[in-house]
Design a protein around this nucleic acid. Sequence first.
DNA 1: ATTAGCTGCTAATACGCATTAGCAGTCAAG
DNA 2: CTTGACTGCTAATGCGTATTAGCAGCTAAT
Lengths: 343, 343
Amino acid sequence: MAAPKRLTQHDIAKLAGVSQATVSLVLNGAPTALARIPQETRERVQQVIRSTGYVADPIARRMAKGLNRILGVFTYEPAFPSAQADFFTPFLLGIEEEAQIQNYDLLLLTGAGVGQDRKIFADGNRLRIADGCLVLGREFDRTELKRLVLGDYPFVAIGRREDAGGPVPYVGGDYANGTRTLVEKARALGHSKLAYIGPSGPAESIVDRWDGFAAALGDGLELVLHIETVGSAAGDILDALLGYGATVAFFVELADAVRVEAAARERGLSIPEDFSAVVLGSHIRAERSHMQFTAFDIPREEMGRQATAMLVRRIESGDAGGQILLTCEPVEGETLGPAKRRT
Amino acid sequence: MAAPKRLTQHDIAKLAGVSQATVSLVLNGAPTALARIPQETRERVQQVIRSTGYVADPIARRMAKGLNRILGVFTYEPAFPSAQADFFTPFLLGIEEEAQIQNYDLLLLTGAGVGQDRKIFADGNRLRIADGCLVLGREFDRTELKRLVLGDYPFVAIGRREDAGGPVPYVGGDYANGTRTLVEKARALGHSKLAYIGPSGPAESIVDRWDGFAAALGDGLELVLHIETVGSAAGDILDALLGYGATVAFFVELADAVRVEAAARERGLSIPEDFSAVVLGSHIRAERSHMQFTAFDIPREEMGRQATAMLVRRIESGDAGGQILLTCEPVEGETLGPAKRRT
DNA sequence: ATTAGCTGCTAATACGCATTAGCAGTCAAG
DNA sequence: CTTGACTGCTAATGCGTATTAGCAGCTAAT
């Protein structure tokens, strides 16, 4: 059995004894054009439409209007494996929300390459299927970014990005100031010997944290320990912290903080009584860990929303796109206390 | 300045010094037609395409041919809000995987209706942008499902669905047998007084659990308590459990189980020594809760994969689509033990 | 009596692609 | 030297809608 052919405006027109153009005008003509179609004709057409249940084909509509209303979402790491899901989900929430408001659909370019080595320009360049695209990931390929910037395909990055052959349109979190604020808090609580546990590059997000941290040093604040390597044994970190007399430790990675806290507790030390701990960023599902670390909030959903809005502006108005850093508010937590007076 | 115009086959044709038709043929002409375009010309066109990053407009493609290798994913609840994310993410992972294998892109249908009231047919069914679509959500709108079934648009539901004007093509989990198996396990461990904490409808997934449970009753097994309301106070549930002498409680919701377990511990009771607990379904991130509940596994990724494969068959071969229930294997866990001998 | 302006439409075209019919040229067989 | 087959393309058309230009018929003003 062949599918019953879809009704077209042509069919409606014939039934109503008018032309296809008239049907289209009745459906969605400008007021000025509508004024020239008498009530009687309009009703006749409407009647036919109602009785046949005709609905305009959205594809043809978009075709005629020249709009696809599709936004691409490209992620450098694969988006859905559960480990990554935690990272991408909040962004996607914001993106989805705003896309819905703006009446766009989302094309997930999650499968563009297999495994780790995802390239925007790799395969048949699927992303141009969409009107524009959002790019997210912890680390970007600089060469690709440059091509994007120099090209005329509208895109917006989520997370701050260094210039790459020109300014990169992005919406990011202001990690530098978020970090600085936390350092100031520590200062106000009497801390003077700080430790920094985590790398200082090369990703922008990491650089910003370090920059904010370094900028707040001096004036009574001293960095007594900096462990750049990731995944050091918790015991070693703890030994170093105590050895160098740090009263507060700033962690780039929540996981490190969690492990160090556990190690400390095992040795009968407690946070923040014996030393304070601060995490530079908010972790998803904070509620699940049994200790609420002092940190700063990363407004991921808002980043997604604003990036989407910016992209739509670029697509619809040819806007150049800007660079937005959203404030990362401090999260009180329970791991930053007054500096312990050391003997 | 207006948005940068999209490249068209016409542009490519001019650059390569051929006609638009030739470009189209090079891209996806039938072998017989391709045979008549010499290697040299083909390569010249391909080169231009590669250097410009041209990709066919999916809308125009669908307009001309009726297919564009895009699968729509329609979710009743928004897909990414964190509460839902846990629910949808594993399905999406499977869908993504299979879509990639089959060389389809995924279009997330968002803008269809605002807020809770998501309707597939809301705005002149934009879902026709894709060649077919997967429908997921805890509860479906029956009227819409009927329209889908009666219509000629290919779709597949994830999760079992009752007939709606005809059989609904779906890939679901066999919750009934998953539940029954767990009840049998309890029986084997000497339990005879069971409690069921959770509703028995109206969603199919809920009905199936209850049906599987009810079917296993009798023959020495007695339902001594059934709490249908959701979100009761943990203390109340616990009181009821003990009051009615239940030795094992079957929970539809993991959250209830977690809360009851906590309440029990507070009163000095422990699971499974004092009573057993079984959760009817697998929770994502089981590793994060400090207790591993006995439950059955829901093969979400596999459901996503198979539903996608079925959808592609429907699209490409006009297949009617079937009804598949995947086995839900029991998860051992540590909360189901021998029945306590009661005084 | 010409013009201007209005009314009630319709014809024509564009949107970007896929696809079919067929044209102009070459080459070989008859 | 004609016919036929084959090669390497292109022109033309259709998909269903939105939109613009404009036609025919009428009225009213000059």
